[in-house]
Every structure is written in structure tokens, then in C-alpha cells.
Design a protein around this nucleic acid. Structure first.
Length: 276
DNA sequence: TTCCCGCCCT
DNA sequence: AGGGCTGGAA
């Protein structure tokens, strides 16, 4: 017998009311999104990685282009890293692109191309955490599983009047109690729309667990500029500094970190986008 | 200013 | 457990 988590005072009646509310909203306001019309687990994985910390509206054109360019996990595994980074340019968090491609290679070579098997063993897959693995399994197979992202967390806290300090374990348990069995795909799509369009962070005043630092003048801004320049041609540190008019020390740190993340390599004196 | 369907490394 | 990571929109 497993240890049970702290019991949350949520009744069966409250849960049924909540389900009706979410599903009714979905019937009236549900969005038709490109990755919702496929059961291809590879394409769903692409969408989930793109959607990590990135708005739906920005992901849509990138997703469509991506699955046209690389329609299968094997095709992505054969792509070059500069190609992949170019296709990702502007979407943000560029190391996600590197990890998604590494993931495609792990899935192709270690899991025989079986995305779902890889999701069940997600710790071996770069860029895929618990949230993403569960989401892919849910949307591809409609299995009776749950997943809790910042969106679903906010919905549960707001709908049941729970404190922001509620433990993850309790939220996942509650999410499972709320799941209408046999309708996991529809349910999770409904939750996403309910959270994005109705129970927003701004309206509920429930902040996400992790906040981000300012972008303007940050090293993130510098990283983006560096990547754009180096996708065009290899450059030395000195040239980069002149082109970008940036602080030399900040540039050095950014270059080092981008090399560690596998985005760049140092080709003697010049930095290049890593070839693989 | 704050948030957006998190994950990785230290 | 805590900070870093993209860029745009509200």
C-alpha cells in the first residue's frame, strides 16, 4: 500500500461541477489547433516541446513548418544542427531545439523509433520531463493519465480555492480524481483552453511557480544576437564584440555557456554553430 | 511589468 | 532548491 498524500478537502460533487464547467467551456470556446488533429506521437512531441513556456499563437507557424520539413522522427534525426536551429530561430529557448533533435536521435536509435516507448522511459530523452512525457502519452493515446503544468496547476488552485503552497503531489492526485475516465485527450485539451482563455494568471492573480528575469539588456538577448550572427558565418570573439557592441566579459560568458549547451563549438579562434 | 501547455544543470 | 533560458503580447 502506497502512502497517500495529504487529503485535500474536495468533494465528489465539487469535482463533478468542475468537470461540467470545464467541458461546457470547451464546447463553446475550444480552439482548433494543428496538433489537435493528429494522433502522430512524434508530431505531438514536437508541439509539446515548442509549447514549453511559449504561447500557442507563436508556436502555430513554427509547428506547421517543422512537421513539413521533418515529418518523422527519423527525418529529424538525420537533420543537421544548424538547420534545426535556423528553423527554431525566433521561437526562443534555443537549447530546446538542440535537445529535441538529440531526443529524435535517442528515440530513433535506442527505442527503434517508438516515441511512446521513449515517453514511458522519459528520463533517457533530452528535453523531455514528466509534464511533456505524460502530455504526449495523453494526446497520442487517450490513456487515463494526467499531467499538471503551470496552467492546470492554476486552474486547480483557483477552482477549488487551494493555497499556492499546495504540494505538487497533492495537485497530481487531485488532477487524477478530476479526470473523466476514457476522455483524457478531450479533457486535457479542455483544461488548456480553459486555462489560457478563462482562468488566466492575470484574472486569478495566481503567479506561476517560476518567474523569469528581465529580457532587455540581459544575457538572453545577447545569446539570441550571437546565434543569429553565427548562423550566417563563423566569427571570432573580437568580431562578434564589434558587431554587437556588447560588453566583452558578458560576451565571453555567453559564448562559454552556449558551447556547454551544444549550440556552438569553438573552431580554433572562431565560434561556429555546432554541427552535431 | 508580467506571463506564456518546463527542463536542465549546479 | 535555485537560477538560467527567447521573444512578443497584454
Amino acid at each position: 500500500m502506497k502512502a497517500t498524500a495529504t487529503y485535500l478537502k474536495v468533494s465528489g460533487d465539487q469535482i463533478r461541477r468542475f468537470q461540467r464547467c470545464v467541458l461546457t467551456f470547451y464546447k463553446q470556446h475550444g480552439r482548433m489547433l494543428p496538433w489537435r488533429s493528429t494522433m502522430d506521437s512524434y508530431k505531438i512531441l514536437v508541439s509539446e516541446v515548442m509549447l514549453q513556456q511559449t504561447q500557442v499563437s507563436r508556436v502555430i507557424p513554427y509547428y506547421i513548418r517543422w512537421v513539413e520539413t521533418w515529418p518523422t522522427v527519423q527525418a529529424l534525426a538525420r537533420a543537421s544542427r544548424p538547420e534545426v536551429l535556423r528553423a527554431w530561430l525566433g521561437l526562443g529557448y534555443n537549447s530546446r531545439a538542440v535537445r529535441l533533435q538529440q531526443a529524435s536521435r535517442v528515440i530513433t536509435h535506442d527505442f527503434g523509433g517508438d516515441v511512446l516507448a521513449a515517453m514511458q522511459d522519459y528520463q533517457k530523452v533530452p528535453g523531455v520531463g514528466r509534464y511533456t512525457a505524460q502530455a504526449v502519452l495523453i494526446f497520442a493515446t487517450n490513456a487515463d493519465l494526467v499531467t499538471v503544468d503551470t496552467n492546470i496547476r492554476r486552474i486547480l488552485l483557483a477552482s477549488f480555492g487551494l493555497p499556492a503552497s499546495t504540494a505538487d503531489r497533492d495537485l497530481w492526485d487531485l488532477a487524477l480524481r478530476c479526470l473523466p475516465k476514457g476522455r483524457s485527450r478531450e479533457w486535457h485539451n479542455a483544461l488548456m483552453d480553459y486555462g489560457a482563455l478563462q482562468v488566466t494568471a492575470r484574472r486569478t492573480n495566481i503567479p506561476p511557480k517560476t518567474r523569469q528575469s528581465k529580457f532587455e539588456g540581459s544575457s538572453r538577448q545577447l545569446r539570441a544576437q550571437v546565434l543569429r550572427v553565427l548562423l550566417d558565418a563563423p566569427r571570432t570573439t573580437q568580431t562578434l564584440q564589434q558587431m554587437l557592441c556588447c560588453d566583452e566579459e558578458a560576451l565571453s560568458e555567453v559564448l562559454l555557456r552556449m558551447c556547454q549547451e551544444g549550440i556552438l563549438t569553438c573552431d580554433g579562434a572562431r565560434f561556429v554553430v555546432a554541427s552535431d
